[in-house]
Write a protein that binds this DNA or RNA. Structure first.
Lengths: 230, 230
DNA sequence: TACAAAAAAGGTCAATTGTCCTCGAATGAT
DNA sequence: ATCATTCGAGGACAATTGACCTTTTTTGTA
């Protein structure tokens, strides 16, 4: 894919990188780097700062490895049996995470929403084919980094090593929480939790998707909604 | 707890450590270190080698941080709401992992068996009170390392950093697998899996424990056994 | 605006599971 | 060895859920 456009993009990035090394003001860097606007970067920076302290300078030096990606409703971020090469921060939008079981049913395991990371984590860390599918259920904006670039960040930055380890630990804890929910909560309780924690998802996802997320049929979800409306 | 016994133990370990630095033969080291016999250490070494390549010399230099712990049937390895200070390799025996839900029921989430690691992982990595309980359901032998010593190993050994990261990734994947089982398998399928993968557990655990592991009542487990016996 | 197609709601019956119970076998202490 | 207590098996009925279906509502397009 060595088109004129990609060559141009490469040269532009090179020039920008040199400019970064020249210590231009942050304002200029943020405006030019990867065409990601300042507001979006600020959002991501605030997210990272919650995970691990990162200075503005460190952030600017590393944001360069990220690119923006836009998905239309229905587009896939990760396809089944493909190696997941990317991890992304959701600037805006919603992704549904699901897999196909032996009965050829789509089972939704979670909905990823704005201001969170998203990836097929197992596939990403092992660089093996993914058993889960990530699909946008509305138009979605992502900040994306690929596997190689993340390894480069780990290699050149202690801050990113910390972020990487913290993300791994967080993913473990999220998964434990998910397993706990599966064990303890009834479909009705899960529905009420969704209503409280991710009310937008109920607007955007189909009844089919929500029912499979709750682990029940559409009929039972209909009954749950009937009960709650009383 | 600065008793005579603990002071003696400390001095003994110091002497042994100096001997280790003197490069005595492995045979002598293994015989003396922490009174852990060679057969048990060999078992642990084989386990570690499956995770990450470790030389005999590296292993002997680090085994020193481990101690042996014996649990009687019914003893607790991790109590509820206590910070889990240890991670352990199971030389022999079985532990039941469970928690108490809002209805004051004991819900079993897994059984830890010989040749595996065991800990309340979330509590251990965050050093926060544990929401799960680990209890021996038969007499059990463990090789134990505490949080501080593991941090020391991380600090002084690249091999152990790798092992630590690998263990974290494995724990994530195990948890994902567990969540997948909760989502996909019926109680009967889970029972058959237990029968295949951990048949000893069915002998050692109570009907109550197995039923809560399967996510059903005793009555349903009874029906499952009835069906299978046909 | 109207109409077709898709999606959600809800009726009905069968199958599954939980609750509550009894009975027989296994276990542990005297 | 005996007796009391615990533990597991299983019967009966009620409650829940799924399968299959029709009806109602929403959505997209001409």
């Amino acid at each position: 894919m060595c088109t004129f456009a990609s060559k141009f993009e490469f040269l532009l990035k090179l020039v920008l990188h040199i400019m970064l090394l020249d210590h231009k003001t942050e304002q200029i860097r943020l405006t030019l780097t990867n065409n990601i606007n300042k507001k979006k970067m600020e959002k991501f920076k605030q997210f990272l700062k919650k995970i691990s302290p990162i200075t503005d300078s460190e952030f600017v030096d590393t944001i360069f490895y990220f690119t923006e990606q836009n998905l239309k409703k229905g587009d896939f971020f990760v396809k089944q049996d493909k190696v997941c090469r990317n991890i992304a921060f959701i600037l805006k939008g919603t992704l549904r995470v699901y897999y196909i079981n032996e009965k050829a049913e789509e089972i939704t395991s979670c909905f990823c929403t704005e201001n969170n990371l998203t990836t097929s984590y197992k596939s990403f860390i092992l660089q093996q084919p993914s058993n889960i599918i990530l699909q946008a259920i509305e138009d979605t904006q992502l900040l994306v980094i690929n596997y190689e670039n993340l390894q480069k960040l780990y290699a050149r930055s202690a801050v990113w090593q910390t972020i990487g380890r913290s993300v791994a630990e967080r993913e473990y804890i999220v998964m434990e929480q998910y397993a706990s929910v599966l064990n303890n909560e009834t479909a009705k309780e899960k529905y009420l939790r969704l209503l409280k924690e991710q009310p937008n998802v109920l607007q955007k996802a189909s009844v089919e998707d929500i029912a499979s997320y709750l682990g029940v049929t559409r009929r039972t979800l209909s009954r749950i909604r009937q009960e709650i409306s009383k």
